[in-house]
Design a protein around this nucleic acid. Structure first.
Lengths: 340, 340
DNA sequence: TTTAGCACTTGTTATCCAACAGTGCTAAAT
DNA sequence: ATTTAGCACTGTTGGATAACAAGTGCTAAA
């Protein structure tokens, strides 16, 4: 790939990102100071290499996924954030009373707003939380609330109806047992130890131990489920992108964005690396028609993910710059708040 | 309106509900044992009265909002729920361990599923809840979590950073004081009694009583704010309705269903009456292109609203029957659980 | 290696046409 | 007084066709 060919691909990708229309040879000659025929010759090569595609035999060229990937890897230049975008984000972080997770969510709302993409924040990942305390509160003689609290201060609660064959005291005793034995256990391991350590003990003491066991089992599994708090912003913003301008695709995407499993998959990043990651269409397992740009954050002991969902024709450099800027601002917050 | 005319309108509305296509005169003659011309003559009158409309001069007739309203008020007959629908709802209520609000939500999920409409549940209005217990859990020596629980089983929590001039034990003592004196107080009156009864006492015992007082004050006011929990089910189900089968309308509706203000307006029913209410299109202030069917529930001291959002061409009698059936099942639950 | 020129392909748009569904109206029939 | 058959009229729909725009590939000359 000589320089002109690189520049040509870069130009094609960037014009397509801007216009959403296939890029023809004529439109490019002025930029490269040559005739459209020359451009066409080069285009044939880029097409043979798989970086660009045609919709039909006589249409302009559109970047392929491979083309986007190449662009992102080698050609893309960091974009300078505009003053007004910067200002909006700065204002959020200027408000020191705003809790960190709220600030992050607000940032992503802004990003959705100014870019017309959808964004996701996965915060308060309770994976590294440990059990601090479980309380049983009796509402009346047949209903109890189980309140689970972790060392990071995450709290979840669940109400249960007790069959009248079970005495509330038995439930309370079991909770005391858990508080004695399992405090400090990572929250997602509690269920296992509940079975291996608590169950055998209460088996000897409580007749209907299975039911009591289930109460706690449910309470904890509920916790693990509920506590990955995900915020999705501008769910309908992405609908404004021209690629989704037909009914079938719109419905498909709407369903996808409603699907909590999809959103979770998008925002869950088990990798250790901290840099920005880009998933383009079918290349990833997410969705053939979207690109996802994702960044982990780790700040004051709380970690999570921020992600942007847009079309494959996404403004890569802008989003990368914005996410990096948010991250930078997060770092500055770290110095202020950080105690651990 | 003589009987035949009523029957004709009923037939038109019901066929349109079923087919979503304008109803012509020919299709109706067999049902009324007369010629299409006779039907047409009647149709002209129904149109003059404003009950039906034409899309264009030579199209079949479509019910107007006034027509739907008349149908709902005078013509609609209760529909018998099918066995399988009934079974699905029964199964939910059969599970006695399921908390009431979860059961209601599950019901509405089912209804969304089988009808292809969107549904909303507004539950746990804590207005008439009373304080049951407040717990202070120490995370470390500078952070505590205050967990507030009401007699109806609603729980909220809030984390506080303690200035190091305050001893955690002072906070815990205050919580014990509250638990002794204010249990049973309606949750929205707690703040007042906190000031008039608790504050004077801790003033004598704690040097920085103002800060401690503020912690509890914040925790309780937070509670009152946070507790209207809304569930929306099958947000994209309604997209399958043919009336929304074009891009612009689809986007409009999607935006509306994302708008929390809209959803809140839909589900908040300040009226005292308990019967099912039906809001048809522009007739109400909600949205020109949807019908909302809504029912309040009041069960074991917890009250809320269930609502279904569909096209104006909604299957009114089916939804009314389903909502009534859910309500009936809720009542049966009342007898089992209810002790207050 | 570049370029002008040209034939060719495809999508888009407009127009026309016929088939169709359904109406309103009139005049005759019941 | 109702009902109905008949007919003219009016939009909708779908297919065919033509004109046009955008853009390509290829060839031959610069």
């Amino acid at each position: 790939m000589d320089e002109r060919r690189n520049n040509l691909l870069k130009e094609i990708v960037e014009t397509y990102i801007k216009t959403a229309k296939p890029v023809g040879s004529k439109a490019l000659c002025s930029k490269f100071d040559c005739s459209s025929a020359t451009i066409r010759n080069e285009m044939v090569i880029l097409e043979d290499l798989g970086y660009i595609e045609k919709n039909h035999i006589s249409s302009g060229r559109v970047p392929s996924e491979k083309g986007y990937r190449y662009y992102v890897k080698y050609l893309m230049e960091p974009e300078k954030i505009t003053g007004s975008d910067m200002l909006k984000i700065q204002q959020i972080f200027a408000d020191n009373e705003l809790e960190l997770s709220d600030a992050i969510t607000k940032c992503m709302e802004i990003i959705s707003d100014i870019t017309n993409y959808t964004s996701v924040v996965l915060g308060k990942n309770s994976a590294d939380n440990a059990l601090l305390q479980v309380n049983i509160i009796a509402l009346n003689d047949s209903q109890v609330v189980a309140v689970v609290c972790t060392d990071k201060g995450n709290v979840e609660n669940k109400t249960f109806n007790l069959p009248n064959t079970i005495n509330i005291n038995e439930v309370i005793k079991t909770s005391e047992l858990i508080n004695k034995m399992l405090v400090g256990t990572p929250i997602n391991e509690v269920s296992i130890r509940l079975e291996s350590e608590i169950k055998p003990i209460i088996k000897k003491q409580i007749r209907q131990y299975e039911t009591v066991y289930n109460i706690f089992y449910d309470a904890f599994s509920d916790f693990v489920q509920n506590n990955s708090n995900i915020h999705i912003n501008g769910r309908t913003k992405i609908f404004e992108q021209p690629e989704y301008n037909d009914v079938a695709e719109l419905k498909r995407l709407a369903n996808k964005l409603e699907d909590i499993d999809f959103i979770e998959k998008v925002s869950r990043d088990d990798d250790d690396e901290n840099e920005i990651k880009i998933y383009i269409g079918d290349e990833s397992e997410f969705d053939p028609n979207v690109t996802i740009i994702r960044k982990k954050y780790h700040i004051n002991g709380e970690d999570g993910t921020i992600a942007v969902i847009g079309p494959k024709r996404m403004d890569y450099s802008r989003i990368v710059s914005l996410l990096e800027y948010v991250d930078e601002k997060l770092d500055s917050r770290k110095e202020k708040d950080g105690k651990d």
